[in-house]
Design a protein around this nucleic acid. Sequence first.
DNA 1: AAATTCGTTTCGCAACGTAG
DNA 2: CTACGTTGCGAAACGAATTT
Length: 364
Amino acid sequence: MLVKVRYGERQKYVKVAETEEGYESYSTFLQKVIEKLGLPLQSELHLTDESGTEVDADVFEELLQAGNLTVKVSTGRSSVVLQNVSHTLLESDVSDTSFSVTSASSSEVSDSSESRIVLERDSGVKRVHADRESAKEMVRDVLQSKLGGEKILQEYATTKTLTDGTRRQMVNLLVADMIEVHGRIPPTHVREKCALGIITLFPCLRDPYSKNGYEHYYDADGGSGYLAWRIKTVQRNTAVQSRRCYPSTTYQDGPKSKRDFLLTCEQLTGEECREAISFMKHSADESVVKEKMKATFQCRQAMTRDQQASSTVLDVFPRFLDIPGLDGTVTCQAFYSWFIYSPQPQKAIRRVLKLARIKLSAML
DNA sequence: AAATTCGTTTCGCAACGTAG
DNA sequence: CTACGTTGCGAAACGAATTT
């Protein structure tokens, strides 16, 4: 791997040794830069990327692997620009790259403690740079404005990474903001900007093995990534909520009906419960069956949660299969909450639903 | 207090449905 | 047919309650 080093008006390549275990160490590299440029041996170099974000030893190797990275290095005395170039892109990269360097005292760049170097590249690169910056600002603004966002920024500042839980929290905050601003289905370019913002603000979260480095947050190709998944979840939840408010089907006492009785209906136990179960099996009076189904709700719930009893729950409550909408048309979610009053799918209830569907199809 | 259990939420993928 | 949204599912992560 070659890294292009620009120092004042001079430009040099510094070779970074590459072994099977990875690249040479950060400190070795800095020493080579110092030697190559003839800087004082004890010079302290400070690396930043284009956006001014620090590039330290922890992330140096990953950024090298990412390729085509532009890095600015400054010392207390002057500034150095580095650009690493992958072997295959060497030729084109050299010719395509045009820097203009201005200095307050261009004749004495290397020694002047006052000198500042401002870098500009061609307009395309500038635009990319501007996109990154605005994406970064957007992510930063959201995190700073939302409850818990500051904590995320702090965690990254101290650990240079984010734990799994914190990453989720960040993704949740950003997706919530996107949906607030752009509606339930944020446009693809907004999602991409968000992902770009994350890895620009938090360079250590960049994936060196992917094309853009942010595909693990959002990949437009497959519509995947943490952001996409979270958006899906939110969409899913809001869809369920709106369906609950305005039921689309009109089945009476079906899986999608509200079940206020759960809070008020007195539950049968022991002998009374057994009697009700027995009565229901053969009664033709639908309204009484419904009453008894409600009154035996807790018993059914307990059976479902019992590994062994759950397999027989539909034999004990065969009238359950009378309920309209229990075939493929009813959503699992609604079934679960109807059957044992649990808002979320669980293994035990899935088993019963499968069983119910098998029994139903056998009856047809 | 630590370990375990149990239920919930999220992730990641696949299949399906539908609009263009 | 393709692109995109929706839904279902299992695995894993998470968190609260319970047991040791």
